[in-house]
Structure formats: C-alpha cells, structure tokens
Design a protein around this nucleic acid. Sequence first.
DNA 1: ACGTACTTGTGTCATACCGTCAGTTTATAT
DNA 2: ATATAAACTGACGGTATGACACAAGTACGT
Lengths: 213, 213
Amino acid sequence: MTQVRTVDGRIAGRRGQATRARLLECLGELIASTSYRDVTVIDVARQAGTSPATFYQYFPDIQTAVVELANEVLREAAALKDLASEQNWTGRSGGAAAGALVDGFLDFWRQHDAILRVVDLAAAEGDRRFSRIRMKLFNSVVQALTEAITELQRSGKLDAEVHPAATAGALVTMLAASAAHTKAFDSWSVKEGELRSGLTRLVAWGVTGRKPS
Amino acid sequence: MTQVRTVDGRIAGRRGQATRARLLECLGELIASTSYRDVTVIDVARQAGTSPATFYQYFPDIQTAVVELANEVLREAAALKDLASEQNWTGRSGGAAAGALVDGFLDFWRQHDAILRVVDLAAAEGDRRFSRIRMKLFNSVVQALTEAITELQRSGKLDAEVHPAATAGALVTMLAASAAHTKAFDSWSVKEGELRSGLTRLVAWGVTGRKPS
DNA sequence: ACGTACTTGTGTCATACCGTCAGTTTATAT
DNA sequence: ATATAAACTGACGGTATGACACAAGTACGT
C-alpha cells in the first residue's frame, strides 16, 4: 500500500486520512441512492459535513474518487477466486462447485451493485482505468474457469474445439450481467431461486460439456 | 403513432419536427462520442446549431430525449424477434439458429451500443422508463426462447426441471452483456470469431440440453 | 506550558451551465 | 396583403463547479 497523498503532493496525516475515507464512504452512499449522473462534488462534501475544497484536496475529480472505491471493491473480490479455482468440476461435485460460484457472484454483486454499475458503464464507454478494474475483477474467475476447461480437454473429457477463454469469459459475463439485472428477471416472473439454479446449470454444462447430475 | 407535440402542448409542424429530429440525432452522436455523464443540453443545442431554449421546447430534459432515442432503437429491435421465434432448435439446424441469433444480437448491439449502454445503466439504477424499454427489448427474444424450451420439454427431449424463462433470460442477458463488453474479451485474447462460436455453443446447448452438432 | 512549523478546512470568486421568458422571425391561412 | 399561429433566439436569474488564499487546528520540540 503506497502512502496516501493529497492532490498537491503532501502526505496526509491521520486526520486527513479519516476525512478522505469519510468522503469516499459518502460518495459510495450517494452513488447507491441517486443516479450516477446527478452525483456532484458538492453533494458529497455536504453529505460528509465538509466543503467542496476539502474534497478537491484529496481527489482531482469525482471519477478518480470512484476509481478508488472500485479498487476497494476489487480488493474484496479476491474472495471470488477461491470459488472457481482448485475445484473439481466433474460429477456431482461439479454441480456443487457451479452452485457455489453462482451464489458467490450474485451475493457479491448485490453487495456492491452501485459501484459495479458505474464500473460497467465507464468501462463500456472506453475509460481505461475502469476497463482495467473490470478486467481484473473478472480475471481470477475467468482464468480459473479457463484452466478447468483446458484441463478437461487435456484428459479427453471435453471437445477440443471448445475455446476455453471464450467460454469462461461468456459465462462470467453472464453471471455479472444477471446479477446486475435481477429486476429484469422479476419482470419475466423468474424467482431468485429459479435464476440461481438456471445459471448453475448453464455454468456447470458450459465448463464440463456434460449434463450436471 | 401519436402526434408530435412541444412541451407546452402545441402540435409541431414540419419545420418543428425536423428540428426535433435533428436534436435527437445530435444527442445520439454526443452520447456515442463523449461520456454520458458529460452530455449537456447546451452541447446538444450547439451541435444542432440552435439554442438551449429550442431544446426545451421539445424535451423537458435530457433523460426524456434519451428515452425517445431508446424507443427508436426498440422499434428497430423488432427484427431480432424473427431470429429466435419459429426456429427449429434440434439437430443441425439448431446450431444454425443459435449462430444466427448470436450474430444478430452482436451486430445489433454494436450498431446501437452507446444508447444501449445508457439504457442498461438507467435500468439498473431503477428508472422505470428505461427498465420498461430494456425489458421490451429482450422480451420478444426471451419469450421465443422460452417457448422453444417449453416445447422441447413437452416432447420429452429436455429435462422437466429446467426452468424455461430463467434459462432464456440468462442466455439473452449473456448475449447482451457480451456484446456490450467485447473489449473485455480482447483483454482475454479472445477473438471475435471465437467469442461468436463460444456463445453459439452455449446458446444451442442452453436451449436444447444437447451437445450441438 | 509555550511557540513554531506544518497540516487541514473554510470563505470566496470567476466561470459555466440550467431552465425560463419576452420578444422577433418565419410559415400558413384567409 | 394581412392576421394568426408556430418556431426560434437572446438574455437573465439562479445555482453548481472548481481554484485559491487564508484561517484554524494539530503535533512536536524546547
């Protein structure tokens, strides 16, 4: 962890770090409760009980502060990796592994939906910083799934023509987008549990190429 | 089609409709070329060679104008329906149907990515108008796939425990999100063609429960 | 305890955008 | 040609933005 600095290069002390953290926290709350488009520096400062100038002491603009928030989320996402790597995807335990991955993803997304939404948008708009974060966010899981698929191919249990990374990426993308739009599933009268088991089935088959038991 | 009206309730004539259309067109260009957050009424007006006041004559705010744009996209999306309904999903033609659906989806998304991005965000943030549009956008395809799955179940070719709408919704969500984030696949070194065939395989199996030929 | 050096927070200002109005220009009907 | 309605514009008050100088607070050595 590099040292926390103010915009003009000074090293922030204990109090400064507390203010900075409070600003980030309030920014997170605002993003969650209002439209991303409407979040302004003044709002954040007010919410944190301070002034705009104080905000600009720690962040050059809102975007940068959001990047910071996203990086925090990224750090927490490390836990997702364990759900995908070192798992046994064949047989009965394969279904369990897929189920755990799906649950983990949905829960993680629900927990951080506001920030992840913004990351998604900014990444799609081409902002490099956010693309990087989104990529890293998925990377561990995608890589774990890719390896699992490659391994199954090596042992002859799966067609060689399946492209491991494409399949893994598509599955992870599906999980993320489904988590972000659970409301849409509501409108199709799909209940939470049905969505989870549907996703689980698709993930299990996508990885193994075989009907899950 | 109801008559085009100004904000203060008057019916717009030929010239007015042209200006309105030009404003919408410029809004579309701006959303495509700059960050959604930064698109302002003044920018749109300037781009269209008119004044902000003129914009407010036809739209109460930017959101409403974006809704209008999204509705245009929705109208064009009718073509997607044909790619999913009345298809034969079994056997060799099933793979072709899935491939056509994937291609259609990716192309459609690429063509309208900027607006669809905004629709996605606003829908995720809970804006009813955009949720509705997004839902309708997917609805025809989701329903077609749901029916296909249900039909396969009725004829005993697919496990009864598969939830048709959940599966169809997840697949369509996967297609949309994959299309919106093709750059992410770049970073995983997945080429366009590999993505298409990977998605095709997942869609074909998701619908039929059988390995595509 | 006190003064000094440094960090943190505030008040203020120029600028830019928003949304509205009164009023001018352009089209249409008689 | 004239009346009437539609379309557009310039300008304005109000407000958020972002930058800066300076005041208030804090830690630390003596």
